[in-house]
């Protein structure tokens, strides 16, 4: 718990620097003032304590001059704060002309996102680094608020109207996305992440998620055959997670290693018992005769595209179609 702790948030957008600068300015001014006041109070309280001789003078009742000074002085400082704050706000809330539009719909309790070319995602937003993005947001039910701390920006998402929010990410990485306006039971779980990618990676991501792309079709098939019930990332899955599998070296039962290429994946689907991954029981049913070749291709394309954290959340609670290991393989690997 200490390892992840920080005292200052990450910065990942062009506006973050401006907001931080203003924040630090405010911190410096108000910090100085509060220390000053605290020191004065303590100093007066000690120096003019009762019984300290020769200092007491109750005739001191006020002074127009000092009053004016400490009325006008703070006012001037406040004006600086106001103008600086206003200028940052102006930039935060006036979106540039050349921004790319992405559509966001909030509903209890998820974020549904659609890219200009139709790619959809839930609770995740993939964006390229260095490009201006404008979100056009609305809500299906109650008020939510789209908040990305690393970008230092947020805006309420109100039913019945569109709100916009823009940013220009400038650091690759994965950042928190929070719902900041209270919206009911799972308000605290209406969270997700914003993934800022290199433009090239982003293009690949777009391609693999394009409507009608092989990978996206594969995703449907993956869901249709309930592969997800074993290959998920929650709790203790029955099968190995498939994220970032493609191209890796896989350690097999018995110590052999094999590269996870198209052939290997194809074989794993059609004859799962041929090569069993170390640490797992051979419970995966064979899909020979069930999935068509075309479907296998799409499955492979999907598994190839599957990046870190991209396994869809497991929603259905039906038990997986486990094929109990046959009697001829007693003493199979037992995790």
């Amino acid at each position: 718990m200490f390892a992840q702790m920080r005292l200052f948030p990450e910065r990942a957008s062009t506006m973050a620097d401006r907001v931080d600068a203003l924040f630090l300015f405010l911190l410096a001014v108000t910090g100085t003032m509060s220390i000053l006041i605290a020191l004065l109070v303590i100093w007066f309280a000690v120096r003019y304590r009762r019984g300290a001789r020769g200092r007491y003078d109750p005739r001191l009742k006020g002074s127009i001059l000092v009053e004016t000074l400490w009325t006008v002085g703070p006012l001037l400082v406040f004006l600086v704060m106001f103008f600086w704050g206003a200028s940052v706000y102006f930039r935060l809330y006036t979106s540039p002309e050349d921004a790319t539009d992405i559509y966001v719909v909030g509903k209890q309790w998820m974020w549904k996102i659609q890219h200009p070319d139709g790619q959809r995602e839930i609770n995740e937003l993939h964006v390229p680094v260095g490009q201006r993005i404008r979100l056009r947001m609305t809500s299906e039910d109650v008020i939510h608020s789209f908040f990305v701390p690393a970008f230092r920006t947020k805006h309420d998402v109100v039913p019945g109207r569109y709100s916009t929010l823009w940013f220009e990410p400038n650091r690759v990485g994965t950042y928190h996305l929070f719902c900041a306006e209270y919206c009911g039971t799972w308000h605290s779980r209406m969270i997700g992440s914003v993934v800022v990618m290199e433009p090239a990676q982003y293009q690949t991501w777009l391609d693999s998620h394009a409507e009608g792309s092989l990978a996206l079709e594969g995703r449907k098939i993956f869901l249709k055959y309930r592969c997800l019930s074993c290959h998920n990332t929650s709790g203790t899955p029955h099968g190995p997670p498939l994220e970032e599998l493609y191209g890796k070296l896989v350690l097999l039962e018995g110590g052999k290693r094999v590269t996870a290429d198209e052939d290997y994946i194809r074989e794993s689907i059609l004859q799962p018992k041929a090569k069993v991954v170390a640490g797992f029981r051979p419970i995966m049913p064979t899909f020979q005769g069930q999935v068509s070749e075309e479907e296998v291709l799409k499955l492979i394309a999907y598994i190839r595209s599957l990046g870190r954290g991209e396994t869809p959340p497991r929603v259905e609670e039906t038990p997986p179609p486990i094929q109990e290991p046959a009697a001829e393989s007693p003493g199979g690997p037992n995790p």
């Binding site: 907001v19 924040f23 406040f78 704060m81 940052v88 935060l92 230092r152 900041a180």
Partner: peptide
Amino acid sequence: TGLFVAALGVDVHVTD
């Protein structure tokens, strides 16, 4: 700290 939240640019980040 009321002055922080009254500063528009900072409040967008820290509100709620």
